Simulated scan of single mutants.
Amino acid sequence: MLDFTTDTFDHGVSSKATEQAPVNDQVLLDAYSNAVIGVTERVGPAVVRVETGPKVRTPGERGGLGSGIVISPDGLVLTNSHVVGSAKEIRLRDIEGVVTDARVLGVDPDTDLALLRANGARDLRYASLGNSKTLRRGQLVVAIGNPLGFESTVTAGVVSALGRSIRSISGRTIEDVIQTDAALNPGNSGGPLVSSKAEVIGINTAIINGAQGICFAVASNTAQFVLSEIIRHGYVRRAYIGVSGQTAPIPRRHAVLAGVDNKMGALVAQIEPDGPAAKAGLLPGDVVIKLDGVEINGVDDLIRVLDRDRIGKILAMDVLRMGRLRAIDIHPIERKPAGR
Rank of each mutant, 00 (worst) to 15 (best):
D74E: 10
P284G: 14
K133I: 00
S33V: 13
K55E: 14
E334P: 04
E151Y: 08
P22W: 11
G259S: 08
L76I: 04
R164V: 06
I296Q: 05
V56T: 15
T173R: 12
V177D: 01
I230R: 07
K336V: 00
A206K: 11
T153E: 07
G265L: 03
F225R: 15
I328T: 11
P332W: 10
R91L: 06
G213T: 06
A156I: 04
G63T: 12
A127L: 05
S195R: 03
R49M: 12
A114Q: 00
G53K: 10
A46L: 01
Q212T: 14
M322N: 13
A183L: 11
P45D: 05
G85Q: 09
G60C: 05
D329N: 14
I37Q: 11
A269L: 14
I328C: 12
S196K: 12
G130R: 06
L320I: 07
V141W: 04
Q26W: 07
D301M: 00
Q224R: 14
A31K: 15
K336E: 05
L29A: 10
D7A: 15
G68C: 05
V288I: 15
L105Y: 14
K197N: 15
D181P: 08
V36S: 10
S86V: 10
N209I: 08
V48Y: 00
G60F: 06
A183E: 04
A161P: 02
D101Y: 11
V200H: 03
A182R: 06
G63F: 00
I69N: 02
L282G: 07
V260K: 08
A17M: 13
